[in-house]
Simulated assay, not measured.
Amino acid sequence: METAQQLKEDLQKMLGSLTTTAATVVAEQLVGFENNGATLTQIAFNHQWTDWEVIQADLFGIAQLAQQALQDTSLTLSPLLQGLQKPIIDPSVATTLQLYQRFHSLKAVQNKRQMRPSTITEHLLLAAIDLPLAKFPYHDFVSDLQIREIQKELGQQLDHWRYEALSDRFRSTCDFWQFRLGAIKLTKEGQKVQNYGSD
């Protein structure tokens, strides 16, 4: 089988394993003959998604595709990634996570890193996306009970989840970043999530 045809089939197989949003974001960036590919900003505008949704879907999609290519050496893209036998997680993100694992306090990490709280939680979200399910301390930030409560309020159709749709009572006990973390956890557990955040 010709390489081009094999590459096409491999890409279709790999993209098919992603959530709809992640597959769309990754696919629409591809560049080829008579196809310039779209930027993340253009993708967000065209689909009326937030920048954060597109960035998170892109990171998740690329990480999952890279993991597949590294694990399955029969894939056409596998040789291109053999030199990437190192953690995908960003060094700064890794430092934030390591400090949290040492101190078990977001405030302590913030003080050590001299960063805003929002930057610290963003680092933790990125770490959760990049790392295997068992390697991130989800239960330190969002409990299974909270996730079940979210599902009870918003339903099982995760692609329709919106933080603003939660009751005021629940939002008073669950921050927006914890809500996104819960969606990431469910994604890692195999449930299809198309959107992670708010509009």
Rank of each mutant, 00 (worst) to 15 (best):
A44H: 02
A44D: 04
A44S: 11
F45E: 13
F45Q: 15
N46E: 10
N46H: 09
N46C: 01
N46G: 05
H47T: 06
H47C: 04
H47V: 05
H47N: 08
Q48C: 13
Q48G: 09
W49R: 02
W49F: 07
T50K: 01
T50G: 05
T50A: 10
T50W: 01
D51C: 04
D51A: 13
D51M: 05
W52C: 05
W52A: 11
W52I: 07
E53Q: 11
E53H: 02
V54P: 00
V54W: 00
V54M: 01
I55D: 04
I55T: 04
I55G: 01
I55S: 03
I55L: 03
Q56N: 06
Q56I: 02
Q56E: 08
Q56F: 00
A57V: 03
A57E: 02
D58G: 00
L59D: 02
L59S: 05
G61Q: 04
I62D: 06
I62R: 12
I62F: 02
I62K: 07
A63E: 09
A63N: 14
A63C: 12
A63Y: 04
A63M: 05
Q64I: 09
Q64E: 14
L65A: 07
L65M: 10
A66E: 15
A66M: 15
Q67D: 15
Q68F: 13
Q68E: 13
A69C: 14
A69H: 11
A69K: 02
L70E: 12
L70T: 10
L70P: 00
D72G: 02
D72Q: 03
D72E: 13
T73D: 14
T73I: 07
S74F: 08
S74P: 04
S74Y: 10
S74K: 14
L75Y: 04
L75W: 02
T76W: 04
T76N: 06
L77V: 14
L77I: 15
L77E: 14
L77M: 15
S78L: 06
P79S: 08
L80A: 15
L80D: 14
L81A: 10
L81G: 11
L81C: 11
L81R: 09
L81I: 15
Q82A: 09
Q82C: 11
Q82P: 00
Q82M: 13
Q82H: 02
Q82N: 06
G83V: 07
G83Q: 05
G83T: 07
G83C: 07
L84G: 14
L84Q: 09
L84R: 11
Q85V: 13
K86C: 10
K86A: 12
K86M: 10
K86I: 11
K86G: 11
K86H: 15
P87W: 03
P87S: 09
P87L: 01
P87V: 05
P87G: 05
P87Q: 07
I88V: 07
I88C: 04
I89A: 08
I89C: 12
D90N: 12
P91G: 12
P91E: 14
S92G: 12
S92E: 15
S92H: 13
S92I: 13
S92N: 14
V93T: 13
A94I: 02
A94R: 04
A94C: 01
A94Y: 01
A94F: 03
A94G: 05
T95D: 12
T95K: 09
T95A: 10
T95E: 08
T95C: 08
T96V: 06
